[in-house]
């Protein structure tokens, strides 16, 4: 077998150049990886990832269609799954409970459960999607957010809505469009019965356009704000928008 030195040299020359480029590209990729891993955290998430996830959220918020509705199911398919009691561990006297509303024109309001029961009642059976990956078809009944705001004479609201438990330990932040979605309910019933304490009695949020962690149980206070309010899981590395 004859060897051609010129040809062998040509192969080596072509290979050397390409492998050099390959080495540089590999070094660049490792550099990017290391830079991301070593970046500071922003609300519990590595800053570059937070930036892209924030962009994703803003993009979907702009593309959010209030007309797009979550699929509904037969109430007979409804079940229950319990997950999470942050904000529910403090004692609560249901007789003393009031819903405090802040940030609407006309000042602060305090509503009783009877005030809410007197408003139009909406019932819906939708699939609650947990960020963990499981989902559960559930029936909720309560007052549409839009019906409540109409009754209060404030059909339009500031860009953000913050909700928290009476003890202030659990908070969620919402964009106005999601809060005004026709399937966003302040629910007082689940699967045909009054809410159980562990599912958020006396009042919880049921909104299929967001993951379960935004559907706060045992609401004590709702604030309408110009700036994004505190959000428990956002502060711990989760996406702010969390819209489905």
């Amino acid at each position: 077998m004859s060897r051609d030195p010129d040809f062998e040299q040509e192969v080596r020359r072509v290979s050397r150049r390409s492998f050099l480029w390959g080495g540089l590209a590999l070094g660049g990729a490792v550099g990017v990886w290391q830079a991301i891993l070593r970046s500071p955290r922003s609300d519990g998430m590595l800053a570059p990832l937070r930036a892209v996830n924030g962009f994703n959220g803003a993009l979907w918020q702009r593309m959010f269609r209030e007309g797009a509705q979550a699929p509904t199911f037969e109430p007979s398919l409804a079940g229950a799954r319990f997950n999470g009691d942050i904000g529910l561990r403090s004692p609560l006297n249901l007789a003393d409970w009031r819903l405090r509303l802040e940030g609407l024109p006309g000042g602060e309001r305090l509503l009783t459960l009877d005030d809410l029961l007197a408003l139009p009642r909406t019932e819906q059976t939708t699939e609650l999607m947990c960020v963990e990956g499981w989902s559960q078809i559930m029936t909720f009944a309560g007052v549409r957010m839009t019906d409540l705001l109409d009754a209060l004479g404030s059909p339009t609201i500031p860009p953000f809505v913050g909700m928290e438990t009476p003890d202030g330990r659990y908070q969620v932040a919402l964009d106005a469009a999601s809060a005004l979605h026709p399937q966003t309910l302040l629910a007082y019933e689940m699967n045909g019965r009054p809410l159980e304490p562990r599912h958020g009695a006396p009042l919880r949020l049921a909104m299929p356009v967001k993951y379960g962690f935004k559907q706060i149980k045992r609401i004590g206070r709702i604030r309408f704000t110009e700036r994004p309010p505190l959000d428990y899981w956002h502060a711990r590395g989760y996406d702010w928008f969390a819209g489905l």
Binding site: M45, L46, V52, N53, V131, G237
Partner: peptide, 14 residues
């Protein structure tokens, strides 16, 4: 590591 996983996944998905 759910929050971490989602953050990476929806960044590198682009």
């Amino acid at each position: 590591r759910l929050a971490e996983g989602m953050a990476w996944h929806f960044t590198f998905a682009w």
